[in-house]
Simulated scan of single mutants.
Amino acid sequence: MLKGFLKKKSDVVELLSVAMVAAVGASLIATYLSESVDFFGEKSSLYLGLVLTSVVAIYLFKKWKPVEPVEEHIQGFFCYDPEVNFPVYVPRYRFSHNLSSYLESAFNENEELAKLWHIEPLSRVHEVFEGEIPSLKSVSLVREIVEYSVLDILSGQFLNYMHKEDNDHFKRYMHNDAEILALNNRFLNLFAKPMNERACFLDQDEGGELDGEHWIIAECNGALYQQFDFALPKNSTIKRIEGDTILIDTPRAKIKIISMFDGSNAYIAEKFSELYLGVEDFLAVSDHAFAIKVEVEFKPLSIISISDWDKYEWIDSFIKQLKEEFSQELFLKNINWEATLTMIRGISNWQKLATQKELNSSKSQQAEVDLEER
């Protein structure tokens, strides 16, 4: 995404250079024409110059394609067992592990979240689409976990670049800073809360060893602590602008992160539940889809900025990591599902043929025996 913008940026710089040369030429021609044609009297040069400048400005404006928003849409999924009211673990799919572990840890520590999940389970999602109820608490919880997972990845990206680059370029935020608290993500607020302020950890605190500054992640009595340090380029802001949308406004670009989940079902792949998850009855498990959309809008003046673009390489690496963690398409590609399904189908057909051949041979032998007995 950033590399593509920088490529277009160089094209625009080249275009501007050509335009400047053309402008000089146009100026010389205009001077000559104004002396030769005097329709507007003494101000003919001014009027002609304004017309030519306007034409060039409109042309350049239409060519400034780099400042148009760039979007990445990542489709993810998870499997859910309505009988136990909990997600089904999908091996080698990272978000599947996070979803289950985050829910379990939150429920172990926060009875309110557990009650919301059980009172309005995902198994009732059909009631939403049929108009019987407006929404489900469990749907909101899943959406917040998706969002928390995205923010956790983004936090890691910023901190990595802050450690590699000049720290003066970034501003650091803690979990209890007003900007982070205003995001109002319940899982972020719960997991990032200091261990020495949480009952689940207090009986394990020996001599103040649970100081959050010395821990990145910790588990105790089923509860989870994850350090959440955030960093943004200086003069940037982060805020929630809609229910599912977070806006990061930096000096060079505006980044919208939209985490979407409404309970909709998903189609993962042919015979996925039976063959990959080992589910005997595929109807016993429901598959659900969610999506993450990242919109990056580079600001118009960024087109003429020359330095410090290396400070924004985190945009590309952030999107790459999102795909690795959430993308259904990439997951199926990584496990070679199409090739595996083809191989399974071939083996199944070979076994059927072998069984049929053996059965035919047995029948033939039995017929010979019957013939000899006669």
Rank of each mutant, 00 (worst) to 15 (best):
P300S: 14
G263E: 00
E295D: 10
P251R: 11
L275Q: 13
D244C: 08
A269W: 00
R252T: 07
I257P: 01
S259Q: 03
I246L: 08
Y276W: 13
R252P: 00
H288S: 06
V285D: 01
I238D: 02
D281A: 06
L275C: 02
F290N: 04
S259F: 02
K299L: 13
Y267R: 15
T245H: 09
I268D: 00
E295G: 08
F272H: 05
V294K: 10
I258R: 15
I292R: 06
K299M: 07
K293P: 00
K254D: 13
I268K: 06
S273W: 00
S286N: 13
T250G: 10
I258A: 08
K254Y: 10
K271G: 01
L301G: 01
F298D: 00
Y267M: 12
S264Q: 12
Y276H: 14
P300G: 05
D281I: 01
T250R: 05
I241F: 08
E274R: 14
Y276K: 12
I292F: 05
V285F: 08
K256P: 00
S259T: 10
F282S: 14
R252K: 12
V296L: 12
G243F: 06
E270S: 14
L275S: 10
I257S: 05
L301H: 12
S264G: 13
S273I: 04
Y276V: 06
R252H: 10
V294S: 07
Y267W: 12
A266F: 05
A289I: 09
D244G: 06
F290I: 02
G278N: 05
A284K: 15
I257G: 04
A266E: 15
F298K: 06
D249Q: 08
L275N: 10
F261T: 04
T250Q: 11
E242P: 01
D244Y: 06
D287G: 01
V296N: 08
E280Q: 15
I238C: 03
G243A: 09
A269Q: 07
G278Y: 04
V296H: 09
I258L: 10
P251V: 01
N265Y: 13
G263I: 00
S286P: 00
S264A: 14
A269G: 02
I255C: 07
A266G: 05
I241Y: 07
I238Y: 04
T250A: 11
K254Q: 14
F282C: 12
D281V: 03
D262Y: 02
I248R: 09
P300T: 03
E270R: 10
